[in-house]
């Protein structure tokens, strides 16, 4: 399965057969009675300068995947090959912690909740300046200047440096989180639901800011979100996850207009479109609920909900294969079925 996705030139990150199992412990002795396969044999690449969107419903493993990439949690197995700024290839998955630390400069994270991700007892100067301090910028003046520069960059006034997070709105706090992530000139930024806690009018500001910063600093984003319209707005390519596996991976336009996996089709059909004239009364609704990752179904994990299910789907696990140029899907029936995507708006 892994051989089907060849590494491309300019790849900054290669994830190969990544798995993360969480043990389920029960009883007095906390014996392990099962495993939750949160991430189950996931492979993808991220090219330098692009945004890869990782999308799926709750419990699909998108956040676990993104945390494994930064080694915020230990992967169970698999490789995470990162290409450093000096051209070296290192396997983040197995690196000793000591060697990992210098690498952290190059990989940063933006969190979902702008309220709990900032320490309320630290001023902006301390919050944004902390990574600088940790990585050896000991001169306070120097640090202040850099923090001022960073705040300006994300659209906040440097005068606010001495204030504390409670004085800021959700959108402003998210900007602070972005400034902190950018402090060390990272090359890869993992953004986990960075706008889902924000109001609609503020959400657009933060998406625009992320896109501007990407252009200015040639950032690479792994953008994790459940909101398909946000993912569409910012991503160059999109990977769809279902119960710990990537079921489809393609260029954004291809994936939305021409999905190749029945789950992607169902997701797209379920998104409410902000236009009353686009109401689809005849749309196919997915039945049932997301499978339990502790006890996934046999064969294709999606088969109990799939409208196109056949016998083979119940017994054999499909693999992610290239079904069109740069378009990967894992479905036994991909060649036989015609799926509907989203048709672009007319003169909206």
């Amino acid at each position: 399965m892994t051989d089907s996705i060849p590494a491309m030139d300019g790849t900054i990150l290669e994830v190969r057969r990544l798995t993360k199992h969480f043990p389920i412990r029960r009883g007095l002795l906390k014996r392990t009675v099962g495993m939750v396969k949160a991430v189950d044999d996931v492979s993808f690449d991220i090219r330098s300068g692009e945004t890869l969107g990782l999308v799926g419903e709750s419990g699909c493993g998108k956040t676990t995947t993104s945390r494994c990439v930064l080694r915020a949690i230990e992967p169970t197995s698999g490789e995470i090959v990162f290409r450093t700024s000096d051209g070296q290839e290192v396997n983040v998955a197995t690196m000793p912690n000591r060697e990992l630390r210098p690498l952290r400069r190059e990989m940063q994270m933006i969190f979902q909740d702008p309220f709990s991700s900032l320490n309320s007892r630290m001023s902006l100067l301390d919050i944004v300046g902390e990574p600088l301090l940790v990585h050896g910028m000991n001169n306070r003046r120097e640090r202040q200047e850099r923090v001022a520069e960073l705040l300006r960059l994300v659209g906040l006034r440097p005068e606010y440096m001495q204030r504390y997070p409670h004085a800021f709105s959700g959108g402003e706090r998210q900007r602070i989180g972005i400034a902190r992530a950018l402090a060390l000139h990272p090359r890869l930024v993992v953004a986990d639901e960075p706008v889902s806690a924000l109001d609609v009018s503020v959400q657009a500001q933060v998406i625009n800011l992320l896109m501007d910063l990407q252009n200015e600093f040639e950032l690479t984003y792994l953008f994790v979100a459940h909101d398909l319209s946000v993912v569409k707005q910012i991503s160059d390519r999109v990977a769809v996850m279902y119960v710990g596996k990537i079921v489809e991976l393609a260029n954004t336009e291809d994936l939305f207009s021409n999905p190749k996996h029945p789950y992607t089709e169902a997701l797209l059909a379920a998104v409410p479109v902000p236009d009353p004239r686009a109401r689809r009364d005849d749309r196919k609704l997915l039945q049932g609920e997301v499978a339990n990752p502790a006890n996934p179904p046999s064969g294709c994990y999606f088969h109990p909900r799939c409208p196109y299910v056949q016998d083979v789907c119940r017994t054999e696990t499909p693999t992610l294969t290239e079904v069109a140029p740069s378009h990967f899907a894992s479905c036994h029936r991909v060649k036989e079925i015609e799926l509907t995507g989203i048709s672009p708006a007319g003169a909206a």
Partner: peptide
């Protein structure tokens, strides 16, 4: 105007 749409191009 500010909401992203899956229909956007």
């Amino acid at each position: 105007r500010s909401i992203p749409s899956v229909q956007a191009v």
